[in-house]
Measured scan of single mutants.
Amino acid sequence: MVQRGSKVRILRPESYWFQDVGTVASVDQSGIKYPVIVRFEKVNYSGINTNNFAEDELVEVEA
């Protein structure tokens, strides 16, 4: 279970941040499909630095 402030590695192959490390900004408990919002240092092609992920697409590298 990841929690706010954890450092996580992204396992979603189609993601711009695949294999990159980001910080968990928040975790939604309402039961949505992609409840974990992760914030990154670098921006993607659209200038965005956050994205939603499912918990099984993340691996915690640092608490």
Rank of each mutant, 00 (worst) to 15 (best):
N51Y: 12
F40R: 01
I37Y: 10
V24Q: 00
I32T: 13
A63Q: 12
A54T: 05
E14I: 06
V61G: 03
Q19E: 08
V2G: 03
G5A: 03
E62S: 12
R9D: 01
I48S: 14
V43R: 13
V2M: 11
E14K: 08
S30G: 10
W17L: 02
K42S: 12
S26M: 12
Q29L: 13
V59Q: 14
E62Y: 11
V2L: 15
E57Y: 04
K33E: 10
V24L: 02
F53M: 01
T50V: 13
G5Y: 02
S6W: 09
I37E: 14
R39Q: 13
V21I: 13
V27Q: 02
V59K: 09
F53I: 01
I48E: 15
S30I: 05
T50L: 09
D56H: 14
N49E: 03
V24K: 01
V24E: 01
D20T: 09
V2I: 15
T23D: 03
E14F: 08
Y16G: 00
E57W: 05
G47Y: 06
E14H: 11
V8M: 00
N44Q: 06
R4Y: 05
Q3H: 11
P35L: 11
V61A: 05
P35F: 13
D20R: 08
G5T: 03
N44M: 07
S30T: 13
V59H: 07
N52F: 08
A63P: 13
V61P: 04
R4K: 13
F53T: 03
S15I: 04
R9N: 03
G47E: 04
K7G: 02
I32R: 08
K7L: 13
P35D: 06
D28T: 06
D20N: 09
S46F: 14
N44Y: 06
W17E: 00
F40K: 00
S15N: 02
V8T: 01
G47P: 03
I37S: 13
I48H: 14
L11I: 09
A25C: 15
Y45A: 15
V36Q: 00
S26Y: 14
P13G: 05
G31I: 10
Q19I: 07
S46E: 15
G31E: 10
V24P: 01
E41L: 09
S26F: 14
S30A: 07
W17N: 02
E14C: 13
A63N: 12
M1F: 13
V2S: 04
I37F: 12
A25I: 15
V21C: 08
E57T: 03
R9F: 04
I32Y: 07
G31A: 11
E60G: 07
A25K: 09
K42Y: 08
V2P: 09
